[in-house]
Design a protein around this nucleic acid. Structure first.
Lengths: 150, 150
DNA sequence: AAAAACCCTATAGCCACTTTAGGGTCAAGC
DNA sequence: GCTTGACCCTAAAGTGGCTATAGGGTTTTT
């Protein structure tokens, strides 16, 4: 891996859009890079590692605020690990909850799809009937036991 | 169900935040209500049903643009039902994809959590080690085969 | 020397809301 | 009749995590 890198090279290397890098810099998630004489950003090994860390955490769908917190912890190696654990725990709970609600959602949509096959006109479309009836609280194939939470 | 309703009553009845109702109105998803002499919004049965329909679709996580399209279809009952079907189909595919990526995510986070139990100091925290190592592309317990797509 | 590829800043847009600021109106109790 | 509190109004800004656009400058390739 050759260093230093220009922003476009860093972007390609880490599989990130280049505007995203500037965005991370703007919100203070990435430290300010050096600048070449022409004003171009210049990145070294530390930046590469840090961006890779951020992207890996994002691939785990962690919010940027969690990632910032993790970086803080990493900078104070003598602190207690418990907060890291609970951060992951909380995130896991979030994911788990979202997963359950998506599974419920999928089931409802499958039922909904089964209510109609195309070729008919809108008036007799089972899907619209189901959706309207459900909104009215009548019985229908797509029961909405668990409301979706975002 | 008594009518007419003021905005707060409609909100309570449909389980929606009152600002959300005004927002739906502003973007043209809900038609303009009548106004009382004092300028207050006044809603009737049609509005209640329409809002309930919107919320039910939102509970199925449909984007507002899909919901607007469905309402369009409902207003032209002689049209072909096929577009409704494919709208649901597309949405189902979205949900299914997100579901798969969340399942993968959960697995990775479980592995990550297993890498550390609290009581240690940050320096020897398995979670941070895993996250950093993974970012570097080394082998680690939380393999990232499928990137998360939003 | 010209064209393409890269870099810069600042600002606006995306989704679906939520929050804030700064008011007006109305019913109940003192 | 006057205050208190619950309700209503508008307009604008903020949220998260980017993405896109406008309007430039620089560097590399042809």
């Amino acid at each position: 891996m050759k260093t230093p890198l220009k922003i476009g090279e860093l972007a390609t290397h880490c599989g990130v859009a280049l505007e995203t890098i500037r965005y991370y810099e703007k919100i203070g998630l990435l430290p300010l890079p050096h600048r070449a004489a022409n004003g171009y950003r210049v990145y070294g090994t530390a930046h590469i590692e840090q961006l890779a860390f951020i992207r890996h955490c994002r691939a785990l769908d962690m919010p940027l605020s969690d990632i910032a917190a993790l970086q803080q912890f990493a900078d104070e190696p003598s602190g207690d690990c418990g907060e890291i654990d609970s951060l992951i725990e909380t995130h896991l709970a979030r994911v788990h909850e979202r997963l359950a609600s998506l599974q419920n959602l999928e089931r409802q949509l499958l039922n909904l799809r089964a209510a109609c096959t195309s070729g008919r006109c809108v008036q007799e479309c089972g899907i619209l009937h189901e959706l309207t009836a459900a909104a009215q609280g009548d019985g229908c194939v797509c029961h909405s036991q668990t409301p979706v939470s975002n």
